[in-house]
């Protein structure tokens, strides 16, 4: 990808509190096009809050957000999707009684006059699925209820990729999947990045992280413990970053790490 060097999204000095609880402290975070950024951290480290700030669900207290090099303020989910940010939440939010095409275009249907333009939607959905090499689907007109867990995840991800989105955020996409289905979804995550999207992957699973991620950002009690290339770290180091905020030379200074507790 040509623009691989510049971050599509950059957060600088982000702070967020809920009442007295300081959830995010001076968080710096950047994702580049064509790159899978794994966001790891223990429960309560602030992963979800960070994602919700990017998705426009929580307003930030202080700090800057740059998208495509320009400073932006994301003041709602609509603003986020207008920028090209799509979030695939853990519960997927698909309507079981609608088919794949209908789900992918839900809320953003194409029309001719007042009539739905089914043909053009079906073609676009088919193209997107083909681009992401989704092969397991028997028919794009089958109801989502008839899909397996992995296929549902696939549809949710393809839906996010349909919208010329630049940044796709995936919240634990493999959490409830079996081995083969996890494989499918991870392949899809990789292809998503390879077809020019920036991807943020939230995961607890070190196998997933080391399989597809290019970089890893570890959060520890609301601070960024480290932002490293996957190739430069071992699994053990990442686990230490998650649990203790530091690992050898990496991570927070001992005092800061202790302070955070």
């Amino acid at each position: 990808m040509a623009e691989n060097g510049d971050p599509v999204l950059r957060l600088i000095g982000l702070n967020k509190s809920f009442g007295a609880v300081h959830v995010l402290r001076d968080v710096d975070f950047a994702v580049r096009l064509g790159e899978v950024m794994a966001l790891v951290g223990d429960n309560g480290a602030g992963k979800s809050t960070l994602i919700k700030c990017i998705a426009g669900i929580h307003p930030i207290d202080s700090g800057r957000i740059e998208f495509d090099g320009r400073p932006v303020s994301i003041d709602g989910p609509r603003a986020a999707s207008a920028l090209g940010i799509e979030v695939v939440y853990q519960d997927l939010a698909l309507a079981d009684n609608l088919d794949i095409v209908q789900n992918m275009f839900l809320g953003r249907e194409r029309r001719k006059g007042i009539v739905l333009d089914e043909a053009s939607m079906e073609e676009a959905a088919r193209r997107t699925l083909a681009r992401l090499s989704v092969r397991t689907v028997r028919s794009v007109r089958q109801r989502v209820a008839s899909l397996s867990g992995g296929q549902r995840q696939t549809v949710a991800i393809a839906k996010a990729a349909l919208w010329e989105s630049k940044l796709v955020i995936l919240d634990e996409p493999t959490a409830a999947l079996g081995v083969a289905q996890t494989r499918q979804v991870l392949d899809l995550v990789r292809r998503l990045a390879d077809t020019g999207h920036a991807v943020v992957l939230i995961s607890h699973n070190m196998n997933d992280v080391f399989e597809v991620a290019d970089r890893v950002t570890a959060l520890y009690l609301g601070r960024v413990a480290a932002d490293v290339a996957r190739a430069d770290v071992t699994r053990g180091q990442v686990v230490e970053l998650i649990t203790a905020g530091r690992s050898g030379d990496l991570g927070l200074a001992p005092r800061t790490a202790a302070e955070s507790i």
Binding site: S81, A93, L94, A95, N97
Partner: peptide, 14 residues
């Protein structure tokens, strides 16, 4: 149909 099938999904879809 979407609201009848999954109101939360419909809400998130705008």
């Amino acid at each position: 149909y979407a609201v009848g099938g999954n109101a939360e999904a419909a809400r998130r879809a705008g």
